[in-house]
């Protein structure tokens, strides 16, 4: 068959296929997959008979559009988010339970150690933080400070919200990506945060500001600290896949593990948004009595730990 006869014969089908792709409504009248297969057949004929390059590229483009339409992955947001919170995230938490438990042990272990050291030897904080920062810290949680007398205006709450989000999530992302450095980046961030947290809280206790400090951190800490630990665990999973790629090549192992731990990162990202919200609007509020904050904070801790460490319900 000559090229023109071929075009003549098929043109209407191609035109129809293109129109069907462009129209949004779905009708049962036309069998789109069948038309698509026919089109692939046409292209292979055109290629094997060396029809003109223009015709081949035309069919090629048409085919690409068809493929994108037919095999299009879903792109919904709300429903997947629900499914994610209810199923995917807990399932992944269960799968990487080993890493998450170890990350928790490492984080709180180092934090406790540092807390102990600083508690016993108050001058230790000078090794960790520069002096200016210590002074700033002391000012921040000074109960006699005038800021604690009056309620902070909601506009400054917004500043803090924005700042916290930016800050926290950068940490989580860093530790995820830090996994690429054989997991050492993630571990570094985890340990650094643990050290900082332990030293600072012990120092606060030493100077006797614990009430303002712990009432402040307890609620959002439940989400924030857990999220940082989870993202560091995710980072080490990637790092470990690079160290021990099993039967895959390193690059494939890295890809596969990045895909696998992505829910962990996304989950900790959600938790950090929640944490930033609480930190900005709840923790910093001075009109709420401390025992309420402790109660709510305690409840949040229990809930978060149960959510993270319970076994995921079976998929079926």
């Amino acid at each position: 068959m000559r090229q023109n006869d071929f075009i003549q014969l098929k043109q209407q089908d191609w035109q129809l296929f293109k129109e069907l792709l462009e129209s949004s409504e779905v009708s049962d009248e036309h069998d789109l997959p069948k038309m698509f297969r026919q089109l692939t057949h046409d292209l292979s004929i055109a290629k094997s008979r060396h029809y003109s390059p223009a015709l081949i590229s035309h069919l090629n483009q048409l085919l690409l559009l068809g493929q994108q339409q037919l095999y299009k992955p879903h792109n919904r947001i709300l429903m997947p988010l629900m499914v994610f919170v209810k199923h995917t995230f807990p399932a992944q938490l269960t799968e990487f339970r080993f890493y998450i438990i170890w990350a928790h042990i490492l984080f709180y272990g180092v934090a406790l150690l540092m807390f102990g050291i600083t508690f016993l030897e108050p001058e230790f904080i000078r090794n960790v933080l520069p002096n200016a920062q210590v002074v700033h810290l002391e000012e921040m949680y000074d109960p006699s400070d005038s800021r604690f007398e009056e309620e902070r205006a909601s506009d400054s709450d917004f500043i803090m919200f924005g700042y916290y989000i930016f800050n926290n999530i950068s940490i989580a992302f860093q530790s995820f990506v830090g996994g690429l450095l054989l997991g050492f980046g993630a571990l570094y961030i985890l340990l650094f945060n643990a050290l900082y947290f332990g030293v600072v809280s012990a120092h606060i206790v030493n100077i006797g500001y614990q009430d303002t400090f712990f009432s402040f951190v307890i609620t959002h800490g439940a989400f924030e600290l857990t999220a940082i630990v989870i993202s560091a665990a995710a980072g080490t999973v990637i790092g470990y896949s690079l160290i021990a790629p099993k039967k895959l090549s390193r690059i494939h192992a890295m890809k596969a593990s990045a895909k696998k731990v992505f829910p962990l990162i996304f989950g900790s990202f959600l938790m950090l948004v929640i944490a930033a919200f609480i930190e900005a609007f709840w923790s910093s509020s001075h009109s709420i009595p401390n025992y309420v904050k402790y109660a709510v904070g305690g409840f949040c801790w229990v809930w978060v730990l149960v959510y993270v460490f319970r076994r995921a319900p079976n998929e079926n």
Binding site: D155, S156, D157, F158, I159, M160, G162, Y163, I165
Partner: peptide, 8 residues
């Protein structure tokens, strides 16, 4: 200040 927060 609120604007600054929003900007962040």
């Amino acid at each position: 200040n609120m604007g600054q927060g929003l900007f962040f």
